[in-house]
């Protein structure tokens, strides 16, 4: 946290972004991830064995962070980032390093197959084929992470199926090509079973192409550790936040659609680090985010006011 502030000052408002081609994006530095069970071993094994992975779990419990972490871990030793030109970065590999780029696609209901595979574009010289992110990931041997996959249109399953069985191919209908995936390619999808609706569910034929790793909010002690580490608040504050998280999640079946995610707890912690009073931080980061119903708000606030002075 503190370092980031300093760097902004030293660069004096220079733009700080970096630009990568999608398949060249590597997780550069070690993301913080606190393993709870054997998920690291499972994912590594699946990666080595080319088994696609389905991550199940409620929102904000660390699925995306986990994938990032795995991408970093599988690509170790560290890749080096060296800025070339203005903002454009290329990442050089050192000896013994593996390139494991991470391509993340947040799925939404208008996401079509050609958004993923690619399309022809018109330009001054005629037409040009542009690879979609999935094609690029397949070619580059990246970890392709489809977040909230149930949201995507049904025609995407046409692409997912051949990629996820023994064939590991991506048929590109329009160019009339078939791309065999790079050896390091892995498809990973996430899915939140809590949103279950009769109209939106993952088909079994799709589900059964993946191993499923279940995620849940970590146990109190571990969550406190995570919150402390991520938000930079004091360990007492982190412990209280984790306790709050646990208590609020107890209301999940009694009015709250979702419990307070670890992410929200971290937000609250960050606000506290910035000097916002604890109760206020929890109110804006947790209470008001979770529900609009006045009585529920009040109840959660009472829990907050019991835990925090």
């Amino acid at each position: 946290m503190v370092e980031a502030v300093e760097s902004v000052e030293s660069e004096q408002n220079e733009p700080q972004f970096k630009e990568y081609a999608i398949e060249e994006f590597l997780v550069r530095s070690e993301p913080y991830y606190r393993p709870v069970g054997d998920e690291l071993e499972l994912f590594t094994a699946a990666y080595n064995q080319h088994i696609p992975v389905l991550l199940k779990g409620p929102t904000g419990c660390g699925k995306t962070r986990f994938v990032e972490y795995m991408a970093w871990r599988l690509g170790r030793p560290m890749t080096v980032v060296r800025p070339v030109d203005s903002g454009r970065a290329a990442q050089e590999l050192r000896e013994g390093e593996v390139r494991v780029p991470l391509v993340t696609i947040a799925c939404h209901e208008d996401l079509t197959a050609s958004d993923l595979v690619g399309r022809y574009l018109l330009d001054s010289e005629g037409t040009r084929w542009i690879d979609g992110p999935m094609t690029r990931a397949v070619k580059a041997g990246a970890i392709l992470y489809l977040d909230e996959v149930v949201e995507a249109r049904k025609d995407t399953t046409v692409l997912i199926h051949p990629l996820t069985d023994h064939r590991r191919i991506l048929p590109v209908e329009k160019t009339g090509q078939i791309i065999e995936a790079d050896d390091r390619f892995l498809l990973c999808i996430s899915y939140n079973p809590h949103y279950q609706s009769a109209l939106k569910d993952l088909k079994h034929s799709t589900r059964q192409r993946f191993i499923s790793v279940e995620f849940d909010y970590p146990p109190v002690e571990i969550e406190a550790e995570i919150v402390e580490k991520e938000s930079g608040c004091s360990s007492e504050q982190a412990a209280s936040l984790a306790k709050l998280g646990e208590k609020v999640r107890n209301l999940r079946d009694h009015g709250l659609a979702e419990g307070a995610s670890t992410r929200l707890l971290i937000y609250a912690g960050r606000l506290m680090t910035e000097g916002i009073p604890a109760r206020r931080a929890c109110q804006v980061a947790i209470v008001w985010t979770l529900t609009d119903e006045p009585e529920l708000q009040r109840s959660v606030e009472e829990v907050v006011s019991s835990i925090f002075e």
Binding site: N250, D253, H254, E295, R298, S299, E302, V303, S306
Partner: peptide, 15 residues
């Protein structure tokens, strides 16, 4: 009562 009930549920984790 509604508030107290939810408060108790949150604390105890049982309905």
């Amino acid at each position: 009562k509604g508030i107290v009930r939810l408060y108790c549920r949150a604390l105890s984790g049982s309905p």
